[in-house]
């Protein structure tokens, strides 16, 4: 079980130079296995730095990171092994494709793990299925494909390592609404079938409110909000005060409140807004 536990984690860049900057400031949190987490915050709030600590790409300036109970920075070997357990998909991952064929590119991760070719083959096909990459594309060069397809191939390349935790940094950036929706759909069904933890770093409040079970909000290198969407959106004003957008449905709910109509419960999706308004309508009729 790949539970993540972070204890008093701090990280600074360019230590000892005039450019020294605190990216993470004393962060502690636990993510039990199997959660769907949305990690939110401004550019520069520390989101990307935080997730790069989960697979030891960055090492803490202070504090510890445990994955499955093991301090991942205790040795070179744990630092290497954690990369198989915690898969990280970077922003615009399509720019990291390099193999001649789609198949070989997806197989790169499993190959680095030293698996047998039959095992690799099984994983490549499984991962392609999860990421929505058709097997017809396997022998094509990734370079000839569309941006959306490349993105899926890159995601499949990480899923093929069968990580217990899958982290994606802005997986829908730059895609059209349809493409974004499909990728998020794939990620949700991936998590349902494998039971892995999925952590999505995003700017898109609407998407995260809809699909995440838990939202973590960072601001200025610190953890400022952490809870279920219900909990987090019970204080929409606080999110706004942090300079972040709230979902469109929450904006409408807030505007209604200003006009004297209190929907009384947290609203952060279309359905919740619709039902809350309809309830008030019923109440008025009775």
């Amino acid at each position: 079980m790949a539970d993540i536990k972070v204890v008093n984690l701090s990280h600074s860049y360019s230590i000892g130079t005039p450019f020294e900057k605190k990216a993470l400031d004393n962060i502690s949190l636990e993510i039990p296995h199997g959660q769907m987490v949305g990690l939110l915050g401004h550019t520069g709030s520390g989101k990307s730095s935080l997730v790069q600590h989960f697979n030891a790409l960055l090492q803490p300036t202070a504090g510890q990171v445990y994955v499955g109970g093991v301090d991942i920075n205790s040795s070179k070997i744990t630092r290497r092994d954690v990369k198989h357990q915690v898969g990280l998909v970077f922003q615009y991952p399509e720019y990291q494709l390099f193999e001649e064929t789609v198949y070989k590119d997806i197989a790169f991760g499993p190959q680095n793990m030293g698996l047998s070719s039959s095992e690799i083959d099984e994983r490549v096909r499984e991962a392609a299925g999860f990421a929505g990459v058709s097997e017809d594309l396997f022998e094509k060069s990734p370079l000839e494909l569309s941006g959306g397809q490349k993105r899926r191939i890159a995601i499949a390349g990480v899923i093929a390592m069968r990580p217990g935790v899958l982290i994606l940094d802005e997986p829908t950036a730059g895609l059209d609404p349809e493409g974004s929706r499909l990728i998020l759909q794939n990620l949700c069904s991936y998590r349902r079938s494998t039971g892995s933890t999925v952590i999505i770093v995003s700017h898109n409040m609407d998407d995260m409110a809809r699909i995440a079970e838990r939202l973590i909000v960072l601001a200025n290198a610190a953890l400022v909000m952490d809870g279920t969407p219900e909990e987090v959106f019970s204080e929409p004003e606080k999110i706004r005060a942090l300079g972040l957008n709230v979902p469109q449905s929450t904006q409408i709910a807030l505007a209604l409140k200003e006009k004297g109509i209190d929907l009384r419960e947290p609203v952060f999706t279309h359905e919740l807004l619709l039902n809350a308004i309809l309830r008030i309508k019923e109440a008025a009729v009775c």
Binding site: I252, A255, L256, E258, G260, I261, I277
Partner: peptide
């Protein structure tokens, strides 16, 4: 929001 409020 104004329209919804008025209607309600």
């Amino acid at each position: 929001a104004q329209m919804i409020a008025d209607a309600l």
